[in-house]
Amino acid sequence: MKVRYFVLSPDAGTTPEELVFRIIESGFDGIVKETCFGAIIEGEDERVDKIAEILRGEYYYVFSKERGYSIGDKRICRAERGGGARTGFYQIEYESEFLPLIAEAIKDFKIEKTKKPKNVIVHPINSLILADLVERSGHKPLTMMTEIAKLVRNPEIDAPPRNITTEDVIRGLKYASIEMPSGIRGRLGVWDELIQNAEAGLVANYEYAFGCAGCTHNDMLIYLIKQRGIPFIKLDLPRNQEEAKKFVEDIFVFLSSLG
């Protein structure tokens, strides 16, 4: 079972309603939810990934990443959790501001899909843009969302909303002592598998990052990627079209160099 976000670039001519219609029209038999930024779908892994492939092929301005929670999960439902948006929502909202630049940059870019997919860890670890670009190149993005999915679907843990427990925080001691705040150690405990399985790293400087990447000490991940000795690239988010073109080019050149 997999859940995916589809986020429309704010300047896209397509509406979320039209996007949902296209998903259903393409024969998707899972759950589809229209949202203010696009859509969320839930279903069998292969079918969900197939929809991502179809939509990316048809609309250069649709971006996608996995989501940890099932559609309608009460642990993050506004009605159940006291009204306000969860932290991850602001991550999507912030990244949406860059989608017009990125969409325009990839519009005519000929992306060659790799036949030898590698595990590419991204920083910020919940980035929509980075996870999307890694997937477009045929590699596998290592993101927090996949780990959160494992946690929140584990019926044996009851520590809402993310099911991160003291055990995860203690696991984080592998990377940082108790002199570091528990919030970053809890994240490190969950990132552990991602860090160990990473074969490459894609790092971007974000002015704002929230939720799974919202800690002040979040950049510790960059250090840990470097420590692994794996190939990685570090970039700044683009501020104009020219920078966006270079941003996208640099990323795809790096990803294609991985094999």
Binding site: G83, G84, R86, P161, R162, D168, S182, G183, G186
Partner: peptide, 25 residues
């Protein structure tokens, strides 16, 4: 900040509910 990643968010929520309060975000 950090409560959800320290495994204490639900403990805070539980305490609020135990004293008859309601958590608001």
């Amino acid at each position: 900040c950090g409560a959800e990643y320290s495994g204490v968010y639900h403990e805070i929520q539980k305490a609020i509910e135990m004293v008859g309060g309601e958590l608001v975000i």
